[in-house]
Design a protein around this nucleic acid. Structure first.
Lengths: 168, 168
DNA sequence: ATATCTGCAAATGTTTTGCACTTTT
DNA sequence: AAAAGTGCAAAACATTTGCAGATAT
């Protein structure tokens, strides 16, 4: 499920090709970011990525980080989302099928899902208006523990623990 | 389609009831905002609302405006959306059926649509996960003139003109 | 060589907040 | 009188930008 080391190096090369085509340059900072970003599971903010880089002893300035995030997104290695909380979130686009998101309004957990029929219907709506689809964003804001009646969000601790375990 | 004067006054009373229940107070500024907001067609930002109020000679400070927007949303008179461009947008919730949005990535035109089947499928997804739906947001980012091949967005002028005409 | 990068600090733009004063209840 | 609201200016916040010096091609 996670990209192998070889796949990550391949992505570094792909990014280099992308940069070359735009007459931009590959740098140590950008290489580092490709590697760290592709290694990351789940969604992360610019700030979270920065903290990871600092922890790894490979920090780059926020300016450079933001500039690189934009390029990585443009190169298709990263996908950005707006979940309406004032911070853009990213996830790697390698080894990931298209999916939509459910967010728990209590604990902010992100749960992914796909529904082929919904995708088709969206396409149909756009087509019927004579437009073409550029992108789409479907986010369901849910309460993930309402039916457990605990008041606090029962899944929160579990989700955080498993993310930490898998993340390092 | 637009609320009548009577309906707007009714909404003022409803807002007053909402405030009373929360032990908050009705003020001139809040009354003004209810009226202006319910009179507004389409989507607007805090800044656009402010300009309208200034133009009407009934301006309130941005601090008060933001505080009131939050209350109006809470009271269900207003609906807020995040279209991923850094500014929250609002629309009146009176006389409005639920709908989703298509945004032209070129001209930022907002086109509304509904699709009952998509709604049902969303509910089903949430139910299948054992959650309950709190809210949902479906936004399709489209190119509205791609098939007209003009390069510039053919509908933009038309849309802006008709919004101005209907808005005053 | 020269165009692009980086990091810093400063700017940006929207939204929020602390506070002294005013208004509603 | 007490509780809440207002406007102002300042703060907060994520993100962007100008610029001088560093680096990749």
């Amino acid at each position: 499920m996670d990209p192998t080391a070889a796949e990550i190096e391949q992505a570094v090369l792909a990014f280099e090709a992308f940069l070359r085509e735009k007459r931009l340059k590959m740098t140590d900072q950008r290489r580092t970011m490709v590697r760290v970003v592709l290694d990351k599971r789940g969604h992360f903010t610019a700030d979270e990525l920065n903290r990871k880089l600092v922890a790894d002893g490979e920090s780059v300035s926020m300016a450079t980080l933001y500039r690189a995030l934009a390029l990585l997104e443009e190169a298709g290695l990263l996908e950005g989302h707006d979940f309406a909380d004032g911070q853009r979130r990213y996830e790697r686009a390698l080894h990931r099928e298209h999916h939509d998101h459910m967010i728990c309004v209590d604990c902010r957990a992100v749960i992914e899902f796909t529904n082929e029929r919904i995708e088709e219907l969206q396409e149909e709506v756009v087509r019927r208006h004579g437009f073409s689809m550029h992108d789409h964003s479907l986010t369901l804001f849910v309460k993930c523990d309402e039916w457990h009646g605990t008041g606090a969000c029962a899944r929160r601790a579990k989700i955080e623990a498993s993310q930490q375990a898998s993340q390092g």
